[in-house]
Write a protein that binds this DNA or RNA. Structure first.
Lengths: 330, 330
DNA sequence: GCACACTGGGAAATCGCTTTCCGGGAGGTG
DNA sequence: CACCTCCCGGAAAGCGATTTCCCAGTGTGC
């Protein structure tokens, strides 16, 4: 491939001058030389070697973002938000998917650190395992010590800049809204017990119901995906209102009820969480808690890129959106 | 950050030896020295600088993949497939989103080439613009000349390894299946006329209808997304069966009919294309043409990574899936 | 015993770029 | 007119790895 030296030679200038012309610098270069270099670069089709630049500059223009699963619209939206701001800053994006394996997440952080990426965005829910979290923190500390920047979307457990969706509060608000419609017997499709996001949403919901003096909701654990929601429906018992801790699970639940001939919302009300865009045309339209996912991703990257010293934690509220999947039974 | 030299010093060996121990090499290193180096690396928390490695080796372990929009489940699935095989090969993935701007696509190829990525995967539909396509080809040629590898999912117009979904044939098969149910008056929600994928699907459908001697379908152009499908419904006229050139548009169409009080499939039948997983629980369930999206992405990356000399074009068939959104009117 | 592969270790060149430092000429000032 | 500053161009020293080349020490085969 064409190197800067080739360009310099062809233009009859020094390496230094060619570099200053082509790859931005504070230093000025005379108009004629500048033109000669630019012509030579054009003719030769020169493309700077980013690896060499990164090495020489000691800083890359790449950021890393680690998500669980890109085909999950939740993470796709987060990633999209982050990628938009990255593009705005002229940064390239490396995406890693862990498929919910915490070891993979740690491995990715190590690799991204090796890449000397400018910032790392951790966009997955934490799991409740101090040993694993500890190792992740260790890896992050090493990276931070080397001048890296880290931000996270989710629970503020890593000691880094964090954008924290108000899972508890959102779920609680939803619970009050549903109780306000006259429901008293609730079930929660709670996802896996280790997953903090699932747990917080479940806990927020259950606590709010208790505070209202209503009967204890039935909590059904399962997978955090469509099939998890679908399967969990079998154990919802007499509940008149079912809260799935995310929209994808709620859609699974809707499908399960449909198969059983249970009408939603006539026989049972169903609510989710997230307000996933691609699921908004679901029938019946899903009641949910809207999270500004794209903004969350964008904001997290801004935090990571920002100069802030002490770790910032930004809480982002969700907004209850009542739609047809729940019924007023008063 | 800790460099290889630090490790070598701490272990009391030369740089060369440290390198050979830590970053794979054909050369052997004695057991004692090897152990000393490994211990030193562990104590210091050494992480190789990938930029330096890339420069020294002249080859990186990163691949690039360029998609239109990650929040579109079609591209998310493609990317996911590619990322899985990448992970299997120990490769890192850079993802770029163009939001359907061909200039962006060209720019990404240039940047990825500058990164000296091992392979580039172009996963977006081509547009019908010889000028733009020409420039893209030029950029690709430059990259290929430098030893890069390229593969593409979509129309085989770039002279590189390509995985080509059988858009025409799939749409034609769908058309015959729908005609077999007794439909004669069709409309096509055709998406933007410049987009090859949209065009091929539309053309395949229309041609098949013609060949059956049925009346010419009404073709309505619009955006390639949910809102495009939603809007296009206004102009479908008397059609008893509407084909949206992708599932996302079909969902938009379903929503539009619902709002107008038109029942699907009783009053009108609706079909899509792709068989997007997150949309499978739609009501009524969408008739569509299934494309093995994850496999397409995975296969394309394999092609790119493979040693093949002449560009390979692999056609992948779609499978018509009849579901509730269409009615038998015989 | 002796030349001869062979093995494992280290010194140093190299990858392509950035940036510091040095130097010469132009222009401004007293 | 001497002196001092700027300004711009080039030489060269890194950045952190890999890899070639050289060399000493060890076993072999005859």
């Amino acid at each position: 491939m064409v190197t800067l030296e080739d360009v310099a030679k062809q233009a009859g200038v020094s390496l230094a001058t060619a570099s200053r012309v082509l790859n931005g610098s504070t230093r000025q270069v005379g108009a004629d030389l500048r033109a000669r270099v630019e012509r030579a670069a054009g003719e030769l089709g020169y493309r700077a070697n980013l690896a060499a630049q990164t090495l020489a500059r000691g800083a890359s223009n790449v950021i890393g973002i680690v998500v669980h699963d890109l085909t999950d619209p939740y993470f796709a939206a987060l990633a999209d938000g982050a990628m938009r701001t990255a593009a705005g800053e002229g940064l390239l994006v490396m995406v890693g998917t862990t498929h919910r394996d915490p070891e993979q997440e740690i491995a990715y952080v190590a690799t991204l650190a090796a890449q000397r990426v400018r910032a790392v965005l951790l966009a997955g829910s934490r799991v409740d395992d101090p040993e694993v979290t500890g190792r992740l923190r260790g890896e992050l500390r090493r990276y931070l010590a080397g001048g890296g920047r880290v931000a996270c979307v989710g629970q503020p457990l890593l000691g880094v800049d964090t954008v924290a969706p108000a899972n508890r509060e959102g779920a609680a608000a939803l619970a009050r809204a549903l109780a306000g419609l006259g429901h008293t017997r609730f079930a929660v499709l709670a996802g896996p017990p280790q997953l903090m996001t699932a747990r917080d949403r479940c806990a927020g919901f259950v606590t709010a119901i208790r505070e209202l003096g209503l009967p204890e909701p039935r909590v059904v654990h399962g997978a955090f995906d469509r099939d998890g929601g679908h399967a969990a429906v079998a154990e919802t018992g007499e509940a008149t209102c079912v809260f799935a801790v995310n929209d994808v699970m709620a859609v699974g639940a809707l499908a399960a009820y449909r198969e059983r001939g249970v009408r939603v919302p006539e026989d049972v009300s169903v609510a989710g969480f997230d307000d996933i865009a691609t699921l908004r045309d679901q029938v019946p339209a899903l009641t949910t808690v809207r999270l500004p996912l794209t903004d969350l991703g964008a904001r997290a990257l801004e935090l990571a890129l920002g100069a802030g010293e002490t770790p910032v934690v930004e809480h982002v509220a969700g907004e209850v959106v009542l739609r047809e999947s729940v019924r007023d039974i008063r």
